[in-house]
Design a protein around this nucleic acid. Structure first.
Ligand SMILES: [Mg+2]
Ligand SMILES: [Mg+2]
Lengths: 526, 526
DNA sequence: CGTGTGTTTATAAACAATGTC
DNA sequence: GCGACATTGTTTATAAACACA
């Protein structure tokens, strides 16, 4: 029995095979200082918490506490103190801390507004609540990274993990001047410009490969336009403008990859202008999470584990559902679940859908920026089939409840228990081998059960523990975002998060804060 | 304006990048004879037709004639005579000839029978009506190939085109002895066994790479089982058994490709055994055209163009619709059609759907074996959405009628003509930017219009010329097959075909014999 | 005929989950 | 149980073949 492999976070993204291109280890320039003794864990071990810090227990996770920090507080001190507190308490006490700023940080309405500037992505990188986080990052970055391995030019894991944050840091402090006069002089299967890399450090950093996939960058590009459509050439240009790596460093084949991604992913669809002369690319609205570069970035900073505190700064955007039944506790690991398609996992856990109740589909707030998946492809036709309930939500591989590990489908409908392994006859009504009537949760009529997990193979066990919403159209979201940090003293990780209190799709086994409606238990965030 | 690129025939398949593997040009062994003078075009230029040959005009194509040939006739002579006839008549006269055997050849019911042998594919390669064609091929093959380039080891285009037929020839004369005791000793990213190639010519030929894609081979494998399901390992074994190239020659990475294809293509779905211990792969029934190795193969023989007759032998399986309104004439080339997704093209033209009216879904006859596409992926949700007519059949790129090249959508519904380029608001009913109410053709209630081409961009022109069937489920097919050849004297090509008189999906600009119900105008085939 | 655009397949690889020893 | 390793599954990147405007 296998579960579907968990989708890797973009933070842990695979090393991109494109040339690291002999950049002289540009990641190293900020860590010039050799080991000094700035480890917050040691020096702040018995430190008292600054004034105004409020600590409350997590509503459902016993090992987690929520820490509300005033703006005036020294985050480094707080982190150090919480780290010490967590370590002192050991495994019995709280070892995960969700750090939230007291001011609420409710500027999230600016995401993906339908009437936004035609080009607004790159200039707003630091316009969100990420300013504070960048302060954290800067301070961390300025700290001496002790125990760091000798800089390896081949992009080792440490370099790789450092790349993202530095790439982000440069992105947030630099402006881009586009160079549209540049032409592509080479064939796509030829080699890169083979530039000399005596450019300035900033330019050099800009020429580092961004940590985003082609699919993500295409979404950034298209969503940067108010019209949400771009020609291929415009996509090229947008990417070259915002990620100079592709203009300056990458082999010409990256354009081939862009075209490949446009064709491959069903979320990208091609339209034709009224006169039929121009074809341009859009994103399926039902699949568009309106990712833009300014809201979607992630950083990882892994400091030396040898210095007793490995500080890992992630950023994620976590959505908390409102107006929906709060799901029952998410099992950290469902025992003996058959390996599912990752797409199915994400369709509920990690891939919340925008709320199409909004008249402007693009006013929804992007949720879960940990990946940039093609949710249309993943969810397939299930988005469209509320009107044919007996054929919706058929999935490839069943999901079993954790309470039925290897048993023979105890809670399945009896009509489906029979004749396992048989080919399902293709009748008029039911069309798929694995398509059986879904088990509907008692959701109200307005909130039709979604059943993303409710159709199983005849031999599977219904997964009744999940809250099931019939369709994203039935949900509403407010688009409120909160900035937060998660400090896990068990593995000495510090994760930067954005909490979307609109709705949530967290399937993170590291800290089970999914489905928390912050606005309900933290008054100052209401 | 661009049409979607026509899907390449598998006959013209791209060169497979896998190692041609230093095989000593095994293609050459049959063409040992140097140029003799066997060109039928010259010698048979004024040849009289043998007795019993009946020539009739094609019902719709003025440049095409249908030639019914008795079994006793010498096909070579007939081809030569027809070639000469076509050339003599020039472009005014008929230059395409559809050659059919007079005996009807109605053995098509054996395709894809639900109760077929568990393993029946490889032993029936010559069991169809292909026997005669193989005779042709053999005779052609035995002919000296004059003007052939010196054998190039690197797999030039001529070698490549010759490979298919020879591969087929060996397949049809050899039996396979599986060697299941063989293990995979290498990592997948390592190099092939680096065998010595002193094996016999037959084995050597068997070690040539088959001309089928991974997707096709997986379909062959899974469909060879009565249960229509296989574990990954079984798929490996089936392929190694039937295509020894992968067992003996290919790099271990081919298994990675198999897994990649299984995951990538939505037509392959993974199920789990009742106890959840085993997962196995199936084909979505609605996407399964039941391709098996014995029914699906194609050969191409390109003889020397220098010898005045380039004989190209293809085999295709062409389906002719019955019980459906005969579509209006297929335009050979629709002027100014916007480039469509190939999937959309094939969904009507080249990708006929099996008739799910059959109680056994797998009793349908595979149609159009020129490719082995993932029709589920291509058709997406459209198969399932007969119950929500206002949102079905939305396509990415519109199709315009040939009569409206650059005009501003004259025949569109007026509600859709307005506000081009605007983002479609995502209302409750309509979900997609390009999703407008389809224009329904006046198909009968039993044969609901299929509308594969009837949803367009608001700026497009409805493509009313196409016959539109609501769903494959509404169609019925008899599974009758006829063997035929198509001789095109304009380009000196001879195409071997199988005509499925059940229904058709031919979008071949080379000879417009789509939608011909042979049983209606050739009495001996009724 | 060359270029740009679009589609598809092949191949390698990163990575995750799980099974096996 | 644990760790090393193999198997299975998913996803992304890259190259390329090919079609076609
Ligand atoms: Mg696409
Ligand atoms: Mg699949």
């Amino acid at each position: 029995m296998r579960r579907s492999p968990r989708r890797p976070l973009i933070l842990k993204r695979r090393k991109l095979p494109f040339q690291q291109n002999d950049l002289p280890a540009a990641e190293s320039q900020n860590q010039s200082g050799p080991p000094a003794s700035k480890e917050p864990s040691k020096s702040a071990s018995s430190q008292c918490f600054p004034d105004g810090i409020r600590i409350m227990d997590h509503p459902s996770k016993s090992d987690t506490q929520v820490v509300v920090i005033p703006k005036t507080a020294d985050l480094q001190s707080v982190i150090g103190a919480l780290t010490a507190k967590g370590k002192e308490c050991g495994e019995q006490g709280p070892n995960k801390f969700i750090l939230l700023s007291g001011n609420g940080s409710r500027d999230s309405g600016g995401f993906c507004q339908p009437a936004a500037q035609e080009e607004h992505a790159s200039t707003q990188i630091a316009a969100l609540q990420t300013v504070k986080a960048e302060t954290i990052l800067d301070s961390l970055d300025a700290k001496p990274l002790t125990g760091i391995k000798p800089l390896n030019k081949d992009g080792g894991p440490l370099d790789d993990s450092l790349t993202n944050i530095q790439w982000l840091g440069k992105m947030s402090t630099c402006t881009f001047e586009a160079d549209p006069s540049k032409q592509m002089p080479l064939k796509e299967n030829q080699n890169p410009p083979a530039q000399t890399f005596q450019v300035s450090s900033v330019q050099q950093a800009m020429a580092e490969r961004p940590p985003y996939s082609y699919m993500a960058m295409i979404q950034f590009a298209i969503n940067s336009r108010k019209s949400r459509r771009m020609t291929l050439k415009e996509i090229y240009m947008w990417i070259e403008e915002h990620f100079p790596y592709y203009r300056d460093v990458a082999k010409p084949g990256w354009k081939n990859s862009i075209r490949h991604n446009l064709s491959l992913h069903k979320m990208f669809i091609r339209e034709t202008s009224p006169d039929g002369k121009v074809s341009f690319w859009t994103i399926r609205p039902e699949a568009n999470r309106c990712l833009t570069l300014d809201q979607v970035y992630k950083v990882t900073l892994v400091m030396s584990p040898l210095k007793n505190l490995k500080v890992e700064v992630k950023e994620e955007q976590i959505c908390v559902p409102i107006k929906c039944e709060t799901p029952k506790s998410t099992p950290k690991r469902q025992a003996s679940c058959s390996r599912r398609k990752q797409c199915l996992v994400r369709s509920l856990h990690e891939e919340p859908i925008l709320c199409p109740d909004n008249t402007f589909f693009d006013s929804g707030v992007a949720s879960d920026v940990s990946t940039f998946q093609d949710i249309y492809t993943e969810l397939d036709e299930h988005h469209y089939r509320q009107d044919s309930p007996d054929r919706e939500f058929s999935f490839k591989t069943p999901i079993k409840s954790s309470s039925h590990i290897s048993s023979s489908t105890p809670s399945k409908p009896p009509s489906n228990v029979l004749e396992p392994w048989k080919v399902t006859p293709v009748g008029k009504g039911s069309q798929s081998v694995l398509d059986f009537s879904p088990i509907r949760t008692p959701g109200g009529p307005a909130v039709t059960p979604r059943h993303d997990y409710t159709t199983f193979s005849f031999n599977s066990t219904p997964f009744k523990d999940w809250p099931l919403f019939s369709s994203p159209r039935e949900l509403s979201c407010s688009g409120e975002l909160l900035q937060g940090l998660v400090l896990d003293t068990m593995n000495d990780s510090l994760s930067k998060i954005l909490v979307d209190i609109s709705f949530s799709a967290l399937d993170d086994e590291d800290f089970g804060m999914a489905n928390i409606s912050w606005s309900e238990f933290i008054p100052q965030f209401k």
